[in-house]
Amino acid sequence: MKPNEFLIPFQGLKQGKHEFAYQLGNEFFEQFDYQEFESCKIDVKIDLNKTSTMLEFDIHGQGTVEVPCDLTQELYDQPVSGELSLVVKFGEEFNDEDDELLVLPHGEHQVDLSQYVYEMLVLAVPLKRIHPGVEDGTLESDILDKLEELEPGENKTDDDESDPRWDDLKKLLTDK
């Protein structure tokens, strides 16, 4: 099922600037079979500048997505923000090979921006997602306690009891 929420009919629009605003939830991402977000609330604003030969789109998205932390699996709201500029020109055949240029066949009267909005927002989420409570130390979690317990620390053996097999090698480091 292809989303048609971002199907923008440009044929009846006058030349000049136009603005479109959307609020996205999980339904939008489910249409792309993307299930990484528990919930989301994202505002998308599309500015269109229509000229006689091309269309210029500036797409801005900002909001939050609820995702699990990579360390603790605790859910938290991750702020996301993304921008994309897209130029639409007209030619003989459809071509979307370039990320910033879309070529539509002559005679088209609408453009579907849903794939561009989807990719912009998914790429706006950081690859490594860390709960803010982990970074500032305020999150209480059994997983964090276990990670701290297993954290490699200083060697617990007494320094006086070194292995004699390594003594000659240690001398090489100091005899320069």
Rank of each mutant, 00 (worst) to 15 (best):
I8N: 04
R165G: 01
D96S: 12
K146L: 12
E97F: 01
H109L: 07
F6V: 05
D167V: 15
E66C: 13
H109A: 12
K146D: 05
P105S: 13
H18Q: 11
E66I: 15
D58I: 10
D160Q: 13
G137F: 02
L172E: 10
E30S: 10
H18R: 09
I59K: 02
S114V: 02
V117K: 02
K45M: 09
P164I: 09
H18T: 05
K146C: 00
P152T: 06
V134E: 03
V117F: 02
K176L: 10
N49Q: 10
I42P: 03
E83F: 11
E149C: 01
Q73F: 14
V122G: 04
I46G: 06
K176C: 07
V44I: 09
M120Q: 06
F10A: 02
A21D: 13
Y22A: 05
E151G: 01
D96K: 10
Q23K: 15
K2M: 04
D112I: 00
V111A: 05
E66D: 11
D168F: 05
G16I: 07
G153Q: 11
E108A: 11
L113D: 00
V122C: 09
L127I: 15
V65L: 08
E92N: 10
V67P: 09
V87F: 05
F28L: 07
L113H: 04
V80A: 07
E100K: 12
E154N: 11
V125K: 09
P164R: 05
D70H: 11
E30H: 14
W166H: 04
I130H: 02
K41V: 05
K89Q: 13
H60D: 14
P126A: 09
K17Y: 00
S39Q: 14
E140K: 14
C40R: 07
G61Y: 09
L13G: 06
D43F: 10
L55N: 03
D77K: 15
S81M: 11
Q78V: 12
V103Q: 00
E74Q: 15
Q35G: 01
L150A: 09
S81T: 11
C69H: 06
K146H: 06
T157F: 12
P152E: 13
L169Y: 08
V117M: 04
D163V: 08
L24T: 09
C69E: 01
G133Q: 08
G25Y: 05
T72F: 11
G61Q: 07
V88C: 12
